[in-house]
Amino acid sequence: MTQLQYKGTGSATGRTGSRYWRSKSAYLGVLPFLLFSGLFLLYPTWNVVSGAFKDNYGKFSSKVLLEVFNSSVARHAFANSLEISAKTAIVGAILGGLFAWAIVTGKPGGVFYKISVALSSVLAQFGGVMLTFAFLATFGFNGLVSTLAVKYLPNTFLADSTWLYGKTGLSVLYTFFQIPLMVLVFLPTLENLKPQWREASDALGGKAYEYWLRIGIPILTPSFAGAALLLFVNSFSAYATANTLINLSDFLTPLEIATALTSETGGSNPAEAKSLSLFMVIVVVIVMGLYALLRKKVSKWEQKR
């Protein structure tokens, strides 16, 4: 009897467990993980979300939240964060998408393919302290490019490294890790494009640009947009690079949060940090929600192969 039931459960989806497996004591098995994640994941999340509606003495009030919402400093930092994330997401998505196309049009599984993919997976994680040093060594005072520029192009912006320590510089740094991330996310999509579509288009007399305009681009748009949303979240959440490059505490929201939390002048303000964090989480949740919707659309053709 039980043997027969097991046959029914043999599906990979695991939807149908037999009654034998579903005893109450099974719930004890997830208890250690639940305790652990409760401590290190659910508690901090709850702490931030509920803390945003409290003042620094633990009383419920929306005062701090409203203060942060109306503060011009906070709004400025938030606008900077959104602007840099949007710009680097778009530039990174375009450059990374084109590079992914260049990889796909090469020999599949060739040396260039392998090197590009391996390097991308390393460089996509290469944010933070080390990235800052790489760009200081390139464009900073006494860096490789700026030294050359001082010699040969003394009147261009390259000769004067101050641009590096602002919005432009930060965007250039962020784009550095956005491109490889885009390659990793978008490459599988391009590889899944069916060659038969191109052949059909060619056989019916379509030109190359017509194929891209009418078939390629429309079909790739949802996954491209989805990937761009991922890149947006990626730079919106970034803290380490900005922290090591510029020491302006109110320049970006993550920097502002860190200052509110650890202020060295003694004015630490956890309630403000939590309110700012809540606004960040709201943006990320909205963007990830859009991403999930887009992925659903994509998976219809991408996964049914």
Partner: peptide, 18 residues
């Protein structure tokens, strides 16, 4: 998947007391 929606900078705010 929850950590995807919560940036590290936000987790640190919540986990500092712990």
């Amino acid at each position: 998947l929850l950590p995807l929606a919560i940036p590290a900078i936000v987790i640190v705010v919540g986990i500092a007391p712990l």
